[in-house]
């Protein structure tokens, strides 16, 4: 049965009037599949969480380039995926620069999605991207991210994992 990730979009404070649209896993997965240059930005939150790590690697193995931020690189080493370490704040800066050729020198990205980040930290990164770039950003985190273009709502851990499975099926 499809997981509904759009119900709870409660926020505890607001950045302003522009708010992410809640998105379902299948829609998010298909959007990533259709993107010309997607980028998965992974945070340190996956380190030590075996299930989340496993799912993240499955996504990366679909051929999606990975920006391994924080110390998440530790889980990608030797996994035969296209992952590179970068600081997430620096990444947010470079993503807004038309001259940046990407982590692999292959050109700019068009759709960025996020997994494994601290909620407050990612909201700030997304706030920068929302206000100063035209990039499409998708959050597939456990918490609703107001500053993304599209985001899963607030989910219990087990529901989040189910949602990720459905997201993967649609990649």
């Amino acid at each position: 049965m499809a997981v509904d990730t759009t119900r709870n979009t409660q926020i505890y404070t607001t950045w302003g009037r522009k708010t992410a649209k809640p998105v379902k896993p299948d829609v998010a997965g298909k959007m990533i599949s259709k993107a010309k240059r997607p980028l998965m930005v992974v945070g340190s939150g996956i380190v030590g969480d075996e299930t989340l790590t496993e799912k993240t690697i499955i996504i990366a193995k679909k051929g999606i380039p990975v920006a391994a931020t924080g110390h998440s690189m530790i889980v990608f080493n030797g996994m035969d995926v296209d992952a590179k370490y970068i600081n997430v704040h620096a990444l947010a800066h470079y993503l807004g620069d038309a001259k940046w050729k990407g982590l692999d020198n292959q050109g700019p990205y068009d759709t960025i999605f996020f997994l494994g980040h601290k909620k407050y930290y990612l909201e700030q990164v997304l706030s920068g991207l929302k206000n100063f770039t035209d990039l499409k950003t998708i959050s597939i985190e456990r918490h609703f991210m107001q500053n993304a273009t599209l985001s899963f709502g607030n989910l219990r851990t087990e529901v989040h994992l189910e949602a990720l499975d459905e997201f993967i099926e649609n990649l």
Binding site: W15, G16, R17, K18, A92, G128, N131
Partner: peptide, 8 residues
């Protein structure tokens, strides 16, 4: 590199 806390 600006990451606003409030858009207003």
């Amino acid at each position: 590199v600006y990451t606003p806390v409030c858009d207003q």
